[in-house]
Design a protein around this nucleic acid. Sequence first.
DNA 1: TGCGTTGTTTTGAATGATTCAAAACAACTG
DNA 2: CAGTTGTTTTGAATCATTCAAAACAACGCA
Lengths: 145, 145
Amino acid sequence: MATENRHEQAEARLRAAGLKVTAPRLAVLDAVSGNGHLDADAVHTRVMSHLPGISLQSVYNVLGALAEAELLRKIDPAGSAARYESRTGDNHHHLVCTECGAVADVDCVVGESPCLTPSNTGGFAITTAEVTFWGRCAACQAASG
Amino acid sequence: MATENRHEQAEARLRAAGLKVTAPRLAVLDAVSGNGHLDADAVHTRVMSHLPGISLQSVYNVLGALAEAELLRKIDPAGSAARYESRTGDNHHHLVCTECGAVADVDCVVGESPCLTPSNTGGFAITTAEVTFWGRCAACQAASG
DNA sequence: TGCGTTGTTTTGAATGATTCAAAACAACTG
DNA sequence: CAGTTGTTTTGAATCATTCAAAACAACGCA
């Protein structure tokens, strides 16, 4: 059945990353997958419904490990707690609401990655480029004009 | 003399922003101007040489006010303390060292604000776009290969 | 199948940048 | 120069995140 397939795929991805397969890791992977942009606390809440008693610290550990293994992507907008999402590998960017902190995906900008190559690298060995758009989300606009 | 001109210009800019002219504000403005990217603590240290006894809290207040008035620009890379710089108004971006947190300016790439228009705004009213490049700075590369 | 190694989770506490709140104070207006 | 309003100070609190050590479990190998 579908959930077993997801489970096995998750196991395989953990192994491929050289990580041991554990209940907390499977649960976190499942909690984040397809659920947008969740912070550690939200992940903890979700995971607890499957694994009551799991500690928030473990959720932090797991999220850290999964993000490092690139099974999850961490986004850390100024002014709010770090969020995690399951979309990895593509270079999509984010919209962040300046009012409520809501995060939305943006598929990569106008045509091709225009800003991804800076003019002068200042001696830096660049590994990634991050684009964040700031504004007010639909809900916040509706709420207060 | 030159320093008096700077001082008077700073006063004028504060007034233009509707802010009262105070010693802490002038000192912070001066401390940040032309000194790269400083965090609150570094600003505090610098300002104390002119204004011994100024509180760190005041530095936070002043930086907040000046950033809101756009006399300073705040940058807040994930994983380090917020920095402030005096270059405002232009849409330049930043290089951040993943190892030591050092920040360098990048003049905006292709012409003007290339990344400022996402394909789909998801209902957001976008006000700004932020581009951050992550990599290792020259010093960190030299230090450990 | 069982044991040891190594990596993971738990528990409990600490950290540190930033913010909150109220009182003392100073800049600007008239 | 006095009143009002905004600013600075003082002192404490917040909160996401990390540190450290002990308890525990997954996986490889015998």
